[in-house]
Amino acid sequence: MIRHKVLEHRFVDNFPQQLEPGVLYVSLEYGSAAHSCCCGCGEEVVTPLTPTDWNITYNGETITLHPSVGSWTLPCRSHYVIQRGRVIEAPSWTDAQIATERRRDRRAKASYFGQQAPDHAPPSLPEAVSEAAGTPEPPVGSWWQRLRGLWRGPPR
């Protein structure tokens, strides 16, 4: 059950110690968004803004967060979409659906970063953060390199 059906957005440099319910905090500097779970359980939900995780669309008035937010590791297991500042409850997922999505996510990250997808569970968050910091540039010719080339001009 969703308690907070509308989220006000706030662009911030750093997230506050205590997240205010009904507010979606967006830190462009740290490439992430955070909010108190919309079910009302009070748990903190952080969504990294990356090409393989979540992205936001800001239309000058409201924010859309894509894809949906699935709080599978929280006791509430909430699932919802944030579209133009409104929270839309989504159907619950089974454990099998969650496992399938986690495998798809690992493959997408491996593909994006030019690595072979692991057959085992992903590393814990501290390991993932330290690994990501040392991740090399995507290979030349990837869609990301071509997109960057449009902004920078031809490769040197």
Rank of each mutant, 00 (worst) to 15 (best):
residue 142 S to K: 12
residue 37 C to F: 12
residue 123 P to I: 06
residue 23 V to T: 15
residue 123 P to V: 07
residue 134 G to C: 07
residue 129 V to D: 00
residue 77 R to D: 07
residue 104 R to P: 01
residue 129 V to K: 05
residue 118 P to E: 02
residue 47 T to P: 10
residue 147 L to Q: 10
residue 9 H to M: 12
residue 29 E to N: 09
residue 3 R to Y: 12
residue 107 R to Y: 09
residue 67 P to K: 06
residue 19 L to M: 02
residue 104 R to K: 14
residue 60 G to R: 11
residue 47 T to L: 11
residue 106 R to N: 08
residue 99 A to F: 07
residue 28 L to A: 03
residue 13 D to A: 10
residue 71 S to K: 11
residue 48 P to K: 01
residue 48 P to E: 00
residue 112 Y to N: 06
residue 107 R to P: 00
residue 68 S to K: 10
residue 117 A to F: 03
residue 114 G to H: 03
residue 109 K to Y: 04
residue 21 P to R: 01
residue 15 F to D: 02
residue 107 R to M: 09
residue 68 S to E: 13
residue 105 D to H: 15
residue 120 H to K: 12
residue 135 T to V: 05
residue 57 T to N: 07
residue 91 P to K: 03
residue 11 F to C: 09
residue 84 R to A: 15
residue 156 R to Y: 06
residue 150 L to P: 03
residue 98 I to C: 12
residue 16 P to L: 08
residue 83 Q to F: 04
residue 84 R to K: 15
residue 141 G to P: 10
residue 15 F to L: 10
residue 120 H to L: 09
residue 20 E to K: 11
residue 110 A to Q: 03
residue 120 H to R: 13
residue 78 S to G: 14
residue 57 T to E: 07
residue 108 A to Q: 06
residue 114 G to K: 03
residue 14 N to K: 09
residue 143 W to C: 06
residue 69 V to Y: 07
residue 120 H to G: 11
residue 63 I to L: 13
residue 54 W to G: 02
residue 22 G to H: 10
residue 118 P to Q: 03
residue 127 E to Y: 00
residue 101 E to F: 13
residue 59 N to M: 08
residue 151 W to Y: 13
residue 121 A to D: 12
residue 16 P to N: 02
residue 61 E to N: 15
residue 145 Q to H: 14
residue 14 N to T: 09
residue 64 T to G: 08
residue 16 P to E: 02
residue 105 D to R: 15
residue 8 E to V: 15
